[in-house]
């Protein structure tokens, strides 16, 4: 369903992949329920075609673009990234996508564009989690990146996984993947991209500002207030010898991204 994609070996890890079954059957996508199995169970009828993305804000070429037009002229490639969830588990996942930078350049951001804000589809009819009256998140889900983070070569817009189109539970048809940040930054099923001068307030920061910040860089030295981030369980884990590994600063991508944050107090900007 998607064009054959070459692997970008330079940006890929050689660690052992999580099985397809687990990548697509165990994840968080609260729009489809709170359980890890809910997204696969409740997202199967999710309509991803037609799909369009609204580009707005500090940009010379705003407008509503059809997904086909966005994908025209981008080079899809496979990148095997570590994904570290803020809940202290992780997986290695082969995404298919293209670098966000290449897309951003096409829209020609103005000099005032300092941040990029992303929004997930808001459609309670299709997304049972958005109908719940006992949730803590204000829908739609919003995420953001600083402009230099968005332009970083590691930052990926994914349309596929395991060489195939993204299944709806993984954020089809278009999602962000920022491998050096906790998984919740990698917003799914994107319908809006807005360029702003002000730092966006992302959904988890709005929900629990003491626990989640804007940056959310993977950092073993800064604990979540309710649990440690020093280690993670690499999934799939086995019961009697749990696969516990030390969490790496910036999820092991420090060489590539640490200089984005030089001089910043990462305890303050968590």
């Amino acid at each position: 369903k998607i064009r054959a994609a070459q692997q970008n070996a330079a940006l890929s890890t050689t660690e052992k992949l999580a099985p397809y079954e687990h990548v697509t059957g165990y994840n968080n996508f609260y729009e489809f329920g709170l359980g890890k199995n809910d997204p696969r169970a409740y997202a199967q009828d999710f309509k991803t075609d037609p799909w369009s993305v609204e580009i707005s804000g500090e940009v010379h070429r705003p407008g509503t673009y059809q997904l086909e037009d966005i994908l025209k002229g981008v080079d899809l490639e496979e990148r095997i990234y570590r994904l570290r969830c803020v809940e202290a588990w992780s997986m290695v996942i082969p995404w298919v996508g293209f670098s966000l930078a290449s897309l951003i350049k096409r829209f020609e951001p103005t000099g005032n564009a300092r941040y990029v804000e992303f929004t997930t589809l808001h459609d309670p009819k299709q997304m049972p989690g958005q109908r719940s009256r006992f949730g803590t998140i204000d829908w739609p889900y919003v995420e953001g990146l600083r402009m230099d983070e968005a332009m970083h070569p590691l930052t990926l817009l994914a349309v596929g996984v395991y060489g195939d189109a993204l299944p709806p539970q993984n954020g089809a048809p278009l999602r962000l993947v920022v491998p050096w940040k906790y998984g919740f930054k990698s917003i799914k099923s994107i319908v809006k991209i807005r360029f702003t001068e002000q730092m966006p307030v992302n959904s988890w920061q709005r929900t629990a500002p003491r626990e989640y910040g804007f940056y959310a860089n993977v950092n073993p030295a800064v604990d979540h207030p309710r649990w440690s981030q020093a280690t993670e369980r690499r999934l799939p884990s086995s019961l009697f010898s749990p696969n516990i590994i030390d969490t790496q600063p910036f999820n092991g991508y420090a060489d590539q991204v640490a200089d984005l944050y030089s001089g910043m107090d990462l305890r303050k900007w968590y």
Binding site: E21, Y26, K36, M91, L235, P236, L239
Partner: peptide
């Protein structure tokens, strides 16, 4: 469920 490996990617958390 555990013996039949029906608990998914993270059986520890489920149990």
């Amino acid at each position: 469920q555990a013996v039949q490996q029906q608990l998914g990617a993270d059986p520890a958390q489920v149990i």
